[in-house]
């Protein structure tokens, strides 16, 4: 068996009686950018949360570097090197920018590199350095998103999962954000990107999965999908 960095095998997730994700399989190889697209309520966030063990799966298996993650806790997942930037940022608004960053390096094995990681974060997002002692609730939306990403990077993830990072940002900031994501990827971080901004996501991604009501509708290399009429029709809303 070839070792994918992350692999989901026929995963089911339910909230009570309602199934949100059914029989979903996919994988990510090291160094790639994979994007997960789909309408509102398709189950994208649910999948990320299942990977992070925030919600339990009812069946199926999740493998990371060939090892099953069954029975692990959310904090173990972070220690393995999977970090999620949740939808809507979820900063600790009462804490300062610096404190948010420091908490990003909470797992013990990442603490020795904390100073270093903070420096890196500031070179990646210089604006954060200016706001260092400001409470993070007072940052602008774009700054908050940057901080959320920087915070997740503090734990030196092998796989970074971003849930709709472009939500509520101005177009200019969005392009900058995608450039940064690409840069991170070039530095060796594998990325799982959930996006509504399908076009831009597909531009930087290698491979895409299309989700519809909890199941995988189609998948393919981004440049192939962009030519696929069915894809254009359902996801991009372009009729031919």
């Amino acid at each position: 068996m070839e070792n994918h960095l992350l692999e989901l095998r026929s995963v089911d997730v339910s909230y009570g009686d309602a199934q949100a994700v059914g029989n979903f399989s996919f994988y990510i190889d090291k160094g790639k950018i994979i994007t997960l697209v789909g309408a509102n309520g398709a189950g994208k966030s649910t999948i990320l949360n299942a990977i992070s063990k925030i919600i339990p799966t009812s069946s199926g298996e999740i493998f990371f570097s060939g090892m099953s993650t069954a029975g692990l806790k959310p904090e173990d997942i972070v220690k393995l090197g999977i970090c999620q930037v949740p939808e809507g940022r979820h900063l600790f608004t009462k804490l300062t920018v610096l404190e948010n960053l420091e908490l990003g390096a909470y797992p013990v094995h990442t603490r020795p590199f904390m100073k270093d990681s903070i420096e890196k974060a500031f070179t990646l997002f210089p604006i954060l350095k200016e706001r260092i002692n400001q409470s993070s609730g007072t940052l602008s939306g774009g700054e908050q998103q940057m901080l959320a990403i920087a915070r997740a990077l503090m734990a030196r993830p092998k796989l970074l999962m971003l849930d709709e990072p472009s939500l509520g940002l101005a177009p200019k900031v969005v392009s900058l954000l995608f450039k940064t994501i690409k840069k991170l990827n070039n530095d060796g971080v594998t990325i799982l990107l959930v996006e509504q901004n399908v076009h831009q996501a597909m531009e930087i991604a290698d491979y895409a999965y299309v989700l519809q009501t909890g199941t995988c509708k189609m998948d393919g290399h981004c440049h192939d999908l962009l030519k696929n009429s069915d894809f254009k029709n359902t996801i991009l809303g372009i009729r031919e």
Binding site: E75, K79, H90, T93, K94, L103, G104, R151
Partner: peptide, 20 residues
């Protein structure tokens, strides 16, 4: 201490950062 303050505000996010 910082983790306590963070978790007080948002438990799930704490978990996503590796805080038990």
């Amino acid at each position: 201490g910082k983790a306590i303050r963070g978790v007080s505000e948002d438990r799930v996010t704490g978990m996503l950062l590796g805080i038990n």
